[in-house]
Amino acid sequence: MIVLTNYLIVGSILFVLGAIGFLARRNLITLVLSAEMMLHGVSLNLVAFSNFHQNMQGQAFTAFILTVAACEAGIALALILTLYKRSKSLDVNLWSQLAEADIESPHEEEPAVPTAQPTQEFPHLTPAGRSPQFQKETANRV
């Protein structure tokens, strides 16, 4: 016994949460992740229907969704990199050139958020194909 609605409910919850994330978050990468999660909800729906109807059509469609999601992720990330190169920020609010001319920009300078934990360090990639050149003080420290 398999209850179709159970899966549909989970799928729709994933879809809606993804939508909320897409609307509310401002980091471009998080936005793309949220969109991917909406695709998960849809995929789950299709698989559940496939099982319900006992045929492979739903699964075939899910395979296509997988393909499209991969393409989407690749292009979105390339775009994000381009945008980041221009503005040195991943904030989606910076990109509002389509606005009406006299509407004040929604992007206002906010006070920096005091973070409780110390600044998190992210790993930096070393450029491939070249030997890293150390700064003088770094070398001294080393």
Binding site: R26, Y84, D91, T115
Partner: peptide, 19 residues
């Protein structure tokens, strides 16, 4: 991409969501 594009430290746009 995150490592390439992320600014050092917690950024403002991650700390505040929009509406």
């Amino acid at each position: 991409v995150l490592m390439l594009a992320q600014q050092a430290g917690a950024t403002n746009y991650d700390q505040r969501s929009r509406q």
